[in-house]
Structures are given as C-alpha cells and as structure tokens.
C-alpha cells in the first residue's frame, strides 16, 4: 500500500490506539495490498475502535518505547549497579562519621567498600555493552536516552571518588 495512504488510514484510529499500534500498523499496511477491500476494512475497524474502544487495561506501551526498554534487565541493571556503588560510598562515609573520622576511613589495601565499588562499576560495563549491541539497531533514539541515563548514573557514582580523592 502507498505509504501516504497507509498513514492517512492509521490516522483514523483514536490517539491511544495509534500511540500503541500506529507505527507497526502503518508498516503492516505498507507491506500489504492496497486494494479497496483492505481500505474499507481499515476504515470500518477504525470507526469501530472509536465507537467501542478496546476494553481492559490502558493501552500497553510499544515494546520499543523508552519505558518498555528501561524495563529490560540489561537496561536497568547498570543503573542499579551505579546506584548501589553510590550507596556503598554513602555507607562507608556514614561508617566513617560514626567512627569519628569525619568521612570515609582510608585503608592501606583500599578496603571492602572500595573493592565493592570497583566490582559494581566494572561489572556493569559488560551489561552496558550487551544492552547497546542488542537495542541500538532496534530502537536507536530510545536506546541512546537509556544509555545517557546509565552514563549519568555512572558519573554520579564516580563524582564523589573524583572530587573527594578517595
């Protein structure tokens, strides 16, 4: 079917429907025959979708949307690891204050907190790489947003180490 016609027909559907299925439906129409019967079927179905909206839960997100991608373990694990690394630093700092050292207590062999931080930060690199390789070809824009979020979390975790010379 003509891409412009496919787009016009998709526009007949209600907005929530279009937000969820619009992109894939348009691609589906474009790859199919653009005969009168198919067009009439789409017009009738769009009218039906407007008059009797699909019942049940609100329309699910597209599987390639930012939120949907963020729910995949390879997307949220690096974020969680960065936050956990930041948590390790916070715990070490609180422990230092409680011991009266006024901050993180430096140990000659770097200590448990430092090793944990290093494992968490280095461990997320493989997950991050896997995420980028898997998702960048499928949904480049949304994947870049998630990668930016992951980079932000990693920087937030590295900032105290850099600025406090830990």
């Amino acid at each position: 079917m003509n891409p412009r016609l496919a787009h016009l027909l998709t526009c007949l559907y209600p907005r929530p429907w279009r937000e969820r299925y619009g992109e894939e439906f348009e691609a589906f129409l474009q790859s199919g025959p653009g005969d009168l019967q198919a067009m009439a079927n789409v017009v009738w179905s769009a009218l039906h979708a407007r008059l009797i909206p699909t019942r049940g839960n609100p329309m699910n997100q597209s599987p390639n949307s930012f939120r949907a991608i963020l729910k995949h373990p390879s997307a949220f694990l690096p974020l969680a690891m960065s936050l956990a690394a930041l948590g390790v630093l916070a715990c070490a700092a609180i422990y230092g204050f409680l011991q009266g050292a006024g901050g993180i207590i430096r140990q000659p062999d770097e200590g448990t907190a430092a090793h944990l931080w290093q494992i968490l930060m280095a461990g997320q690199l493989t997950v991050l790489l896997y995420f980028a390789v898997k998702w960048l070809p499928r949904a480049p824009k949304q994947t870049l947003y998630v990668l930016a979020l992951q980079a932000g979390a990693a920087l937030a975790s590295m900032a105290p180490v850099y600025f406090l010379n830990l």
Partner: peptide
C-alpha cells in the same frame, strides 16, 4: 482484513492473552 486483525490483536493484548516480541 488488516483492520480486523489489529482489532483482534489489540483486544487480545489488553486481555494479556498475547504479547509482543
């Protein structure tokens, strides 16, 4: 037809009986 198919897909997905890959 394409509209009928996607109408069914939408209903089934909302009911949790099918899921996208």
């Amino acid at each position: 037809g394409p509209g009928t198919l996607y109408g069914a897909i939408a209903r089934l997905e909302q009911q949790g009986w099918i899921e996208p890959l």
